[in-house]
Design a binder for these strands. Structure first.
Lengths: 337, 337
DNA sequence: CTGAAAGCGCTTACAG
DNA sequence: CTGAAAGCGCTTACAG
C-alpha cells in the first residue's frame, strides 16, 4: 500500500494553473489551450492521478454506478444474466454495484436502501418476492420511486410502474403442454415452486391454458408444489414417483426444480431418464453434451440481462416517456418424443 | 421517480437543531440527548431520509465499498465464489462493486483503474493473466499498491505482495496421477489451458510430480494444450481421440475443459463415458445426480470466496503485519476405478 | 482560454 | 450535550 492521495489541487499547483483548469482537462479538454492541456495531462500521469468518483458525484449530483439486484448469483441463470448486463454497462463506462436479495423481502429492502444511499444512476431489479401477492406492492413502488432513478424490472412482472423485461412463461408452458399432448400425453404433471410467486402463477396459468386448449380436464393430483430449489424438486419428485396415480409426462418450472427432478428420477431408475417424458423450464448445462436428450423451454438469461441494461441506458438518456414492457420469447426445444 | 433530495440540512431545519447534531444521531447516537435523538429519528423517517454515501465517504476519507474482480461471472465457479464473498461483506454492511476482466490484461487494468477512482475500501482480486510470466508483475504490483487499500489475491498465486488465498492445485493433480497409477494406469494424458497461465504451470508441474513419483517416463505426446474454454476442451479431446497413440486415463485442468472433454467423448461413444478413465479439476454440476460416476478434484469456490473476504476484513482492521498465504485443500473425489 | 469562489452533503475537532 | 465553522475533492456558472 502506498499513501497516494493526489488531488486536483496537487496537479494544479505543479502545473501552475487553477483547479478549475485541471478539472476542465478532465471534463471538457477541448476548451483548454493545447499547451496547458498537455502539461496538465503529463503531470497527471507522472503523479498517477486518479480523480475521486465520490467527489465528482457529489459535485455533479450524479453517479456513475448502476445497481443490480438479483435473487442469488450462484444460480447460473443469474450469472448469465449478470454477464449480459456487464457487457452493456462496460461499454457505457458505468460501474456495477451488486446485491442479492436471496428471494427474501427483508434482504430486498436492505438492498434497495443500500442502492439509495449509493445514489445509483439506475437500477436493474429482480423483485425478491411477489409483492403484489403480499398486498404491499404500493409500498415497494414508493420505495422504488424514492430511489429517484430509472428502474428496470427483470424476469418477474409483478405489476411495477417501471420498464419491465421478462419472458413469456405463460405461453411457453402452454406450448409445452401442447407439444406433450401432440405426442399423445394426457396425464401431464407440473412441478411448481412457491404458490404465491408470480413465476408460479404465470407458469401454472400456462399449464391450465394448455390443458384447456387440449380439452383435458384439470386434475389437481397432477400438480406438485414445492419451492424453487433443487432439494425441493428432488423431494417432490420422489413423492410423485411413490404415488399410485402416475402421470406420463412432467413439466418442471425452473432450472433448480428440473435438476432435483432429474436427480430423483435417475436415482429411482438407475440413470434412465425415460420414466416420464419431461420438459424443463430453462436449459441445464451439460445435458446436451452428455447425449441425454433434454427437452426444455429455453430462456436466454444473457439476453435478458443485455436487453434490460440497454433499456436502462435508454431510459437514463430519456427519463420521460411511457414505460416499456418488453417480452422475450423462449422457444421450446425438444429433440425427442 | 420522485425528486427527493432530502439532505441533512432539511432534517436539521425541521428538527430545530444543527446539522452537526443530525450527523451525530447518524454516527454516534449515544452522545446526543434522548429526546433530541428521537425527534431527529422521527423526522428522518417521515422524510425518508437516506444519507449520501458519496458525501459521507468524501468527508470521512473512507469508503463502504469492496471491489471484486474476477475473470468471468458466467462460469459457475466464479458465481459460487462471489456468493461466498457476499455472505461476508453483507455481514459487515459493505457494498460490492463488481468487475470482470475476461482474462484479458487490458480489461484488468481498466477494472483496477475503476476501482481506484471508486476508492474501494479493499479489493478481492483474481489476476487476469500471469503477469509474472509476462514480466510485468512489477508494474501490476505498483498499480495495486497505488490503490492504497488492502488487496487479497484469489485463486492464482502469481507472486503478488499481498494476502493470497488459493487451492493447492499442484499437489491435487499429483494425487490424481497417483490415484490413476494405483488403479493400474501408465498412459495418463493431461489437457491444460494456456501454457503461460500460472494455473497451467502449477497443474502441469503436479502432473510431472505424479509421473516422477510413479516412475513413469514423461511422454509429451500425452500433453494436450488448448485454452480454458469448453470449445477448446472439445476440440483438443477430438484430436486426442483421433490419435493412434492412446492414453488410458485423462486429467482435464478446469471445469470448462472438462465439459468440452465430456462433450467430445460422449459424442464419440454415443454417451458412454468410459472411453478413458477421467479425472477433472472442479466439480461439474449434475454429474452426480445423473448417476454418471464423475471423478474430480473438488475445489470449493464458495469457500474460496468466503475465506478471501474474511481475510480482507481482517486486513482492513489491521493493515499491518506479514501477508497471509492461505492454501485451501481440494480433495480428490473418485467413486470408481 | 482561465481563475476565484461558491457549492455538492456530509463529518468532526473545537469551543461552549 | 450542542453549534459554528472548516474541510473532504471535485465542478461550474460568472467574470474577465
Amino acid at each position: 500500500m502506498i499513501k497516494s492521495n493526489i488531488t486536483i489541487s496537487d496537479i494544479a499547483e505543479r502545473a501552475g494553473v487553477s483547479k478549475a483548469t485541471v478539472s476542465r482537462v478532465l471534463n471538457t479538454p477541448d476548451i483548454v489551450e493545447k499547451h496547458t492541456r498537455e502539461k496538465v495531462i503529463q503531470i497527471m500521469k507522472e503523479l498517477h492521478y486518479s480523480p475521486s468518483q465520490a467527489a465528482r458525484n457529489l459535485s455533479m449530483k450524479s453517479s456513475s454506478t448502476i445497481g443490480v439486484i438479483v435473487p442469488e448469483i450462484s444460480n447460473t441463470f443469474f450469472g448469465e444474466l449478470f454477464s449480459g448486463v456487464e457487457d452493456i454497462t462496460n461499454k457505457n463506462n458505468l460501474s456495477l454495484l451488486y446485491s442479492s436479495n436471496d428471494n427474501d423481502q427483508e434482504s430486498d429492502y436492505k438492498a434497495l436502501d443500500m442502492m439509495k444511499m449509493q445514489r445509483v444512476k439506475g437500477l436493474l431489479y429482480i423483485p425478491a418476492v411477489n409483492y403484489a401477492g403480499l398486498g404491499i406492492l404500493d409500498k415497494l413502488q414508493r420505495k422504488l420511486d424514492r430511489l429517484d432513478c430509472p428502474v428496470v424490472c427483470m424476469d418477474r412482472d409483478i405489476g411495477l410502474q417501471c420498464d419491465v423485461v421478462h419472458f413469456d412463461d405463460q405461453s411457453a408452458v402452454r406450448k409445452a403442454v401442447m407439444a406433450l399432448v401432440d405426442a399423445g400425453h394426457r396425464k401431464i404433471a407440473i412441478i411448481i415452486g412457491e404458490k404465491e410467486s408470480i413465476l408460479s402463477i404465470q407458469r401454472f396459468q400456462g399449464y391450465l391454458d394448455g390443458l384447456e386448449q387440449a380439452n383435458i380436464t384439470f386434475d389437481e393430483d397432477f400438480v406438485y408444489q414445492g419451492t424453487y430449489t433443487r432439494l425441493s424438486g428432488y423431494q417432490v419428485t420422489k413423492q410423485m414417483i411413490a404415488q399410485k396415480k402416475q402421470p406420463t409426462a412432467v413439466i418442471t418450472c425452473n432450472n433448480l426444480l428440473s435438476k432435483g427432478y432429474i436427480q430423483a428420477v435417475c436415482e429411482h431408475t438407475n440413470g434412465n431418464m425415460t420414466l416420464y417424458t419431461h420438459i424443463g423450464l430453462d436449459e441445464i448445462d451439460m445435458m446436451n453434451f452428455l447425449g441425454i436428450p433434454y427437452n426444455c423451454i429455453q430462456r436466454d438469461a444473457y439476453e435478458l440481462g443485455r436487453s434490460a441494461a440497454e433499456l436502462l441506458m435508454r431510459r437514463i438518456e430519456r427519463p420521460d416517456g411511457v414505460y416499456q414492457h418488453m417480452i422475450l420469447s423462449s422457444p421450446l426445444v425438444h429433440q425427442t418424443f
